[in-house]
Amino acid sequence: MNIFRLAGDMTHLASVLVLLLKIHTIKSCAGVSLKTQELYALVFATRYLDIFTDFISLYNTVMKLIFLGSSFSIVWYIRRHKIVRRSYDKDQDTFRHYFLVLPCLLLALVIHEKFTFREVMWAFSLYLEAVAILPQLVLLQRTRNIDNLTGQYVFLLGAYRALYILNWIYRYFTEPHFVHWITWIAGLVQTLLYADFFYYYFESWKNNVKLQLPA
């Protein structure tokens, strides 16, 4: 484990905790896209199929359980919690799941490392993770007032992706035969999706004004 990978995992963890904290303490999910959260739950459910069959490390297993547990509980909060669900902006969060899920599934059926159920699901989870943030970004653009926590959540997610790329560069030069095109290209696409958001995030931070994305 290198420092970039650890920092990446920690920012990923922080992003999830920020979101859970917001929902749990303020009892509000305003500005949070249920579509994106459901897609993440699907991403983790399909990627961590090996959780009980292949033991890598205690760290790995615990992190997987945290990401699975947190993503499903966020979905539960927005859908079922009697106070939180009232703040859900259903009319603004209109992105269609299948618009992202179907192309990713087709791509996974065509481009994968091995044609086995687990490998296809694993490739699918990578492709879906790359685009799962889109409903959230669209919602942010529509919501004129982005609260600090939602802004920080998206920022931390983007930082996690950027750190993973540094991790791959590091591993490429330090580990023999560390070449994973599927992971890298999907990861690069995912990180690029945050570029626009990052630009406005830093601008608002630099000028000390509230974050607003242009329509």
Binding site: R5, H12, D54, I56, N167, F178, T183
Partner: peptide, 10 residues
């Protein structure tokens, strides 16, 4: 092998 390295990421 490449596969075992791959699966150690989250």
């Amino acid at each position: 092998t490449s596969e075992s390295i791959l699966k150690d990421e989250l």
